[in-house]
Write a protein that binds this DNA or RNA. Structure first.
Lengths: 148, 148
DNA sequence: CCGTATCCATTCCGATACTG
DNA sequence: CAGTATCGGAATGGATACGG
């Protein structure tokens, strides 16, 4: 994967993919949201090879998605999501929602902790709260918006 | 990437990644949303090798993200997003939003076509419309929710 | 327990040449 | 234009052995 193709691309999508554009990274973040913190936890949960896991964890730390914090118990450290990393929740849940909509079993439901009720499906809303589909929106240069 | 690791995984996130878990596929879908339809359009827009593009397009068609339709002009065909493929809009925009939040330039803004106003940032909402963060939600077995 | 280092097979990617 | 075929180099992945 050559950098020149999309690494220095201006598109934020491409920039995001630079950080989490491979399967293992996404799954590691998923496990991190599930509460996993230790090297071994990720290893067992994902069945990923140690060397690959090492590289991926380093990459995620380098991109500010995870950070290493000293473990309370031992001399080791743990990997926890940074604020930036926690921002990936929407990406993960968007992927999850799409995977569900594609059929197949969905044994889990995302619920509000406060009342246990399912949350509303992820969707875009206009400033007056109308729900918007892909065709109702467009990307325009920032300069154009400011003029309105 | 071995199938046994996450291919037959029950997690919808993993299932989604099976279809669009590589960078090229995501970027192809991005271009499809931007209106690209032809082989050559994707090729030039992304600078991807022909053979890679061929494989990716085939894969996206196989997963029902794209479909081939006969082109109006020539004997060729075009690749257009299916309904399922259009469902990836949220994933793409979640990635975009995250990429923007990570800093860097964001020359484009997502606006409502109807009034040109920026749309609200993507976020989860409870059934009473409270905005929910990652810690306000949890995934619970579907069976548990039905009981409430 | 948490990695690092090494080896090897497989895959991926880009470039090029070629076909209809 | 829209691929297919092929090739070499690079990266990835899994397994294993090793070290702190």
């Amino acid at each position: 994967m050559k950098r020149k193709c999309f690494g220095e691309d201006l598109c934020p999508v491409a920039r995001s993919l630079e950080a989490v554009g491979d399967v293992w990274s996404v799954l590691i973040v998923r496990e991190a949201f599930a509460g996993k913190r230790r090297f071994g936890e990720f290893e067992r949960a994902l069945g990923v090879a140690k060397n690959i896991l090492t590289v991926r964890l380093r990459k995620l730390v380098a991109f500010g998605v995870l950070e290493q914090v000293p473990a309370a118990d031992g001399p080791r450290h743990e990997y926890v999501l940074t604020e930036r990393g926690r921002g990936l929740y929407l990406v993960l849940m968007a992927l999850r929602q799409w995977g569900e909509d594609c059929g197949g079993e969905s044994p889990y439901v995302l619920v509000d902790r406060r009342d246990g009720q399912p949350v509303k499906p992820l969707a875009f809303h206009a400033h007056d709260d109308r729900e918007l589909g892909p065709d109702d929106m467009e990307l325009v240069p920032a300069a154009e918006v400011k003029r309105r």
